[in-house]
Structure formats: structure tokens, C-alpha cells
Amino acid sequence: MSVRVRVRNAETGSTVDMELEEENTVQEIIEGAAGYWEKDAGAYVIRKGKKLLRGQQTVLGASITHSDDLELIPDPEGG
């Protein structure tokens, strides 16, 4: 079963709707959204509310459901 979610770009505020299958991974959502916005090479994470989702989790495993709002955040790596 597929679910439709909205991913928000934390840097610009823009959003994109994504159609996902239960077996899609968080990593694939990150790469799909980063590719859509043509993000620079860099580390990114996805949050759902107060939860940071692990890359290997599937849509089902991460309890992502229809109409969820996700946010793509650049992960700082500088020092």
C-alpha cells in the first residue's frame, strides 16, 4: 500500500509531495528530496515531529503514514 507524505525543505520552507511504498527506506526519501531540490553534496537527515528517522528504516518500520509531514534537515558536519 502506498502513502502520500509531504516533505518540507528546512532551508527554504518549500515542500514536495512524495508517493511512497511501505518498503521504501528513509534513505531513499532523503536522496529523493535532496535530488528534487538539487541540494549540494552533504549530509541530510529526516525528522518526523520530534523524531529523527534512521536511514535504514522502511516507511512501515518508521511508522510513516498517509499525510505525514516530514522535514529534510542539513546535518552540520563542520567544526
Partner: peptide
């Protein structure tokens, strides 16, 4: 908390200044 995007950055160095380093990526300096 890391995913594939982190591993792609392995061995690349982000300078705190963005200059004077071997590998420069167009990241905003801190």
C-alpha cells in the same frame, strides 16, 4: 543517527573557514 549521505562524505573535510584545505565543498562557513 547516520545514513548514506554521511558515508558519501567520508574522508571529505569541511573546513570551519571554507578555505586553505585540500577538499573544499561549497558549504557555508560556520
Amino acid at each position: 543517527a547516520m545514513n548514506r549521505t554521511h558515508y558519501k562524505l567520508m574522508e571529505k573535510r569541511f573546513s570551519c573557514t571554507g578555505a586553505d584545505v585540500t577538499f573544499f565543498e561549497p558549504k557555508m562557513a560556520a
